[in-house]
Design a protein around this nucleic acid. Structure first.
Lengths: 277, 277
DNA sequence: TACGGCGATGCCCGCCGGGTATCGCCGGGT
DNA sequence: ACCCGGCGATACCCGGCGGGCATCGCCGTA
């Protein structure tokens, strides 16, 4: 099975419409129909039920859609990782605005060490780092447990800290010396922010949909929401946002994560710098 | 990147010789050379260092070899799973000769249930089941903890039991009522069998290299080795092999394992039958 | 009944993947 | 020193296949 055939099938399976899929693929519809038919013949299986009104997936089609997507991801990751392995430099993914100081210290320590190569820091939206790692678009990512998943990745813990609530400076709770999570639950005037899920969509709810820290801080300053974040965010607060310790919030651990079996020489040096070795 | 190009590159990277790789691929050497050159041009990276005496991998080449193999495995698994999803029936992998009774009961229970489809039992060598699952060649496998790895698989525990030593009937230890692991360690006349590793190779040592139960039992009967196996193997012993309980051997758990996200209807029915539901 | 949307089919062409022959380079054997 | 042999690259040619255009067949709807 060629990746082109897989791309074609995935496009048709997602659109459930040969014409639209062909448009998406930048080709005409007839060769697409023929390519799918050939694929079905070679697999000895019907993948799509062509009803007079549209297209539906068969059981085998559903299997190939799921498996084909992961196979295409693996091929794309192989390509991206090889491309970057050909040129010097590391690419590190970090949430925009999170752990800025830790990251700065880490990069300074690494660049002071021997054999340092340029590090391209890719700031990304919440939850995007795992995807970038798996897709091979970055070499290493700065994640935060327990928020980010490290399933299938190798990790190195860097730092653990407590959390503070960020509140609009004018809010009554901002005057408190300390808070508990229960104090922040279901505040009608400060609905909880809706962070994106792994697939990039947002859960439903009354609060604002969040993409990155800058947006979150602005929404807090505007009195539209509040958030519970690691203490280290204190160093970069705007004056109209007030931090208050949350005693029972789970501690947050910053970790470096990278795909297994990918310990290149520059990555190893970065890990040495990170662990103070 | 097309899978054909990946296959070509992996062949050359494994052989480190264009001529032999072309032979393995069933093609002539010149088009292979051109395909690799084209791949390098498209990736913008040199993958192979063509020295006048032979071929060597560059750093990027090593990356593409590793990543490309997993990508090709993913494509092959997608193809195999789709092929089998198109036709009814389950394929179950089990070690040849292990847990025969448990397996028989499981299949009987499943086939007595409603909507049972034919189950093709694929008997395989030690440690082969995980590979078959990951390659998509079987739907579900009967594994034994702690011997087999279930990393990356969903599992359902079936049965836990103690272990017995299998000894040549004529051996002095065969007369004992019970044993400890230390009694069996480093016996000069019964060197420990060498079970295959995940990649199919055998560790070094004085004992015989083992592939399956039949071979193992025969070697025990011949007085060439001994083994520690789950108690249930008692039901299928030859008369010239004697079981003796091993008090401190770790208990063995038989588990059903299957790839995550692949709970088809027949597989779900099998799991129901397995858990007595 | 006529029309429109959609996938399949027929037909043609250009390109690319593959084969054969040969070259260029280098290292070793005599 | 020279020649030969092994190996990868290059030159050139060809056939098949992937893709485009036009059209058909089917069916649901107005």
């Amino acid at each position: 099975m060629e990746t082109r055939e897989l791309r074609y099938f995935v496009a048709v399976a997602e659109e459930l419409h040969f014409g639209r899929a062909a448009l998406r693929l930048g080709m005409a519809q007839p060769p697409l129909s023929r390519a799918i038919a050939r694929l079905e013949r070679r697999l000895g299986t019907v993948l799509l039920e062509r009803d007079s009104r549209g297209v539906a997936l068969t059981g085998a089609g559903r299997v190939l859609l799921r498996e084909g997507r992961t196979a295409l991801e693996a091929v794309a990751a192989a390509e991206a990782r090889t491309r970057r392995a050909g040129q010097p430099g590391l690419v590190l993914a970090a949430k925009a605005g999170a752990s800025t100081d830790l990251l700065a210290r880490l990069l300074a320590a690494y660049e002071a060490g021997p054999g340092a190569v340029p590090v391209d820091v890719r700031l990304c939206q919440y939850g995007e780092q795992g995807r970038l790692l798996r897709r091979g678009e970055v070499d290493v990512a700065l994640l935060h447990l327990p928020f980010d998943s490290t399933a299938g990745l190798d990790t190195e813990e860097l730092h653990t800290e407590g959390q503070v609530a960020l509140l609009p400076a004018a809010h009554p709770l901002a005057a408190r010396r300390e808070l508990r999570l229960a104090d922040l639950a279901d505040l009608p005037d400060l609905p909880a922010p809706r962070y994106p899920r792994a697939d990039g969509t947002h859960p439903d709810g009354p609060g604002p949909a969040i993409r990155d820290h800058a947006q979150l801080h602005q929404l807090i300053a505007l009195g539209r929401t509040c958030a519970v974040l690691p203490e280290s965010c204190r160093t970069q607060l705007r004056p109209d946002v007030t931090p208050v310790p949350v005693l029972d919030a789970p501690p947050v651990t910053a970790v470096l994560a990278w795909p297994p079996d990918s310990r290149s020489r520059p990555l190893a040096a970065l890990l040495r710098a990170a662990t103070g070795g």
